Simulated assay, not measured.
Amino acid sequence: MREELVFRRGLEATQVGSPRTRGDMERLGFYVCVKDLEDELIDALGTEEIEAAVARDRPPRPLDALLSAV
């Protein structure tokens, strides 16, 4: 995870600590999320609700207009 590496370097650069493992980071009070926010959202709402939201909120495309006219 790229963010984890960046965070570790930041902690070291600011002399908060030199965490080498996730356990080291936890001892400093920092925790790593394994899932990203999109995964959390899908888990919370469910696949069907996400698909409905995407279909409802995406802007119409020219092909959509052509197909609806047929």
Rank of each mutant, 00 (worst) to 15 (best):
E3I: 03
V16R: 11
D43N: 11
A44E: 11
R9M: 05
E26D: 12
Q15M: 12
G17R: 01
E48S: 14
V6F: 04
R22S: 07
D39H: 06
E12F: 03
A52E: 13
T47H: 14
R9Q: 12
A53T: 11
A44R: 11
C33M: 14
R56Y: 05
Y31N: 02
L28T: 01
G10I: 00
K35Y: 09
V70H: 07
A55S: 10
G17K: 00
V34Y: 12
V34G: 09
E12D: 07
E38Q: 10
V34Q: 10
R56Q: 12
E48N: 12
R58T: 09
K35H: 07
E48D: 14
S68Q: 10
E48L: 08
E40W: 10
T21W: 04
R58F: 06
G29R: 04
D57G: 13
V70F: 13
R20D: 06
V32T: 10
R61L: 15
F7H: 04
R61M: 08
G10C: 06
D24M: 03
S68C: 08
R2I: 07
E38R: 15
P59F: 03
G29L: 06
Y31M: 09
G17P: 02
L63N: 02
G46W: 04
L67W: 04
R22K: 11
V16L: 09
V34M: 09
T14N: 06
P60D: 03
L41A: 10
R22A: 12
E49Y: 04
V32A: 04
R22F: 08
D64H: 12
G10W: 01
D24W: 02
I50H: 01
M25T: 07
A13Q: 05
A52R: 15
E38W: 11
R2K: 15
A44Q: 08
G10T: 03
G23A: 13
R56G: 02
S68M: 11
D39G: 04
L63H: 03
I42W: 02
A55G: 02
L28P: 00
V70M: 07
P19L: 05
T47A: 12
E49L: 13
D57Q: 04
E48A: 14
L45Y: 15
E12K: 08
E49C: 08
G10K: 03
E26T: 11
D24G: 01
A44D: 06
R58N: 00
E40K: 10
K35N: 13
F30Q: 00
L66K: 11
D43G: 02
R22V: 15
S68G: 07
M1C: 08
E12S: 06
D36W: 02
A53L: 15
P59L: 12
R22Q: 13
I50R: 00
D36C: 12
P62L: 06
A55P: 01
R56C: 07
G29N: 03
D39S: 06
P19V: 03
A55M: 09
R2L: 14
G46L: 07
K35S: 08
L66P: 00
D57Y: 13
P62S: 01
E48Q: 12
F7A: 15
A65C: 05
C33I: 08
D36M: 05
I50W: 01
V16S: 03
L45T: 09
E51T: 05
D39W: 04
